[in-house]
Amino acid sequence: MDLQIRIDPLTGPEVAALLREHLDEMQRISPPESVHALDLAKLRQADITFWSAWSGGGLVGCAALRELDGWHGEVKSMRTTAAHRGRGVGAALMRQIFEQAEQRGYRRLSLETGSQPEFAPARALYRRFGFAPCGPFAGYAEDPCSTFMTRTLAGAHNRDER
């Protein structure tokens, strides 16, 4: 698949529709207090970089990276369109996030995803990329509907040493 991943300004109707679908599904699966997906306005915050993935002129997925502090980032808003699941879009977006995190000098990446069966493919993707279970981070609380995962970044270094 010919895939182009780019930083997205979050202004296009395709991205808005995919994010609406993402939020709707999270709200269908999880109780309100367990939905941690961000809406369009929250994804526009200065501490978040958002990417969209395109193939054949159509949107096929998205992902975001939130800076928690100078050494720690959080993966947010990973979503692949239903028609493109299992075709490497999520993996390509994860590689983009890792590249950016390492450029920023992050030492750790963490994420929150659901614990329900519907999230099993996402958890499998994250495990493939070296994420392991951890406790809540960055203000999250223990929640039976949440799975928290983290991983140390290989080659992480102090930005002050560059």
Results as ranks from 00 to 15, higher is better:
Thr81Glu: 06
His36Asp: 07
Val35Gln: 02
Ala37Thr: 13
Leu43Met: 14
Ala53Phe: 09
Arg87Ile: 03
Gly70Ile: 09
Leu68Asn: 10
Leu68Glu: 11
Leu59Asn: 06
Leu38Lys: 14
Pro31Tyr: 10
Ser34Cys: 07
Arg66Val: 06
Pro31Ala: 09
Met78Asp: 00
Glu74His: 07
Leu38Asn: 05
Ile48Asp: 05
Met26Thr: 05
Ser34Gly: 08
His84Lys: 11
Ala83Lys: 08
Ala53Tyr: 06
Gln27Met: 11
Trp51Asn: 02
Trp51Ala: 02
Glu74Phe: 04
Lys76Pro: 01
Trp71Leu: 13
His36Thr: 13
Ala46Glu: 15
Ser55Trp: 02
Arg66Gln: 15
Arg87Leu: 15
Arg85Pro: 00
Arg79Asn: 02
Gln45Arg: 15
His36Arg: 10
Phe50Ser: 13
Arg79Ile: 10
Gln45His: 13
Glu33Ser: 14
Trp54Ser: 12
Trp71Val: 13
Gly61Pro: 04
Arg79His: 07
Gly73Lys: 09
Arg66Asp: 03
Trp54Asn: 07
Gly73Gln: 08
Ile48Cys: 12
Ala83Arg: 11
Gly56Glu: 11
Asp39Asn: 15
Thr49Met: 05
Val75Thr: 03
Gly88Ala: 11
Gly61Glu: 03
Gly57Lys: 12
Ala53Glu: 03
Ala46Met: 02
Ala53Met: 06
Ser30Trp: 12
Leu38Ser: 09
Ala46Val: 09
Gln27Phe: 00
Gln27Leu: 07
His36Trp: 11
Gly61Cys: 08
Glu67Arg: 15
Asp39Cys: 09
Leu43Gln: 07
Phe50Arg: 01
Ala63Lys: 03
Ala64Gln: 08
Ser34Ile: 05
Leu65Ser: 05
Asp69Val: 13
Leu40Gln: 14
Gly86Trp: 12
Arg44Ala: 15
Glu25Ile: 06
Glu33Ile: 05
Asp47Thr: 14
Met78Val: 15
Leu40Arg: 13
Phe50Cys: 12
Ser34Pro: 04
Gly56Asn: 06
Trp51Phe: 09
Ala37Phe: 03
Arg79Glu: 01
Leu38Ala: 10
Gly70Tyr: 06
His84Glu: 13
Ala64Asp: 04
Ala53Val: 08
Lys76Gly: 00
Ala83Thr: 13
His36Tyr: 14
Leu43Trp: 02
Glu74Trp: 05
Ile48Gly: 05
Ser55His: 12
Gly73Phe: 10
Asp69Ile: 13
Val60Phe: 01
Glu67Cys: 09
Val75Lys: 01
Trp71Lys: 12
Asp47Gln: 13
Lys42Thr: 14
Phe50Met: 06
Val60Tyr: 01
Glu25Trp: 12
Cys62Val: 09
Arg87His: 12
His72Phe: 04
Phe50Gln: 01
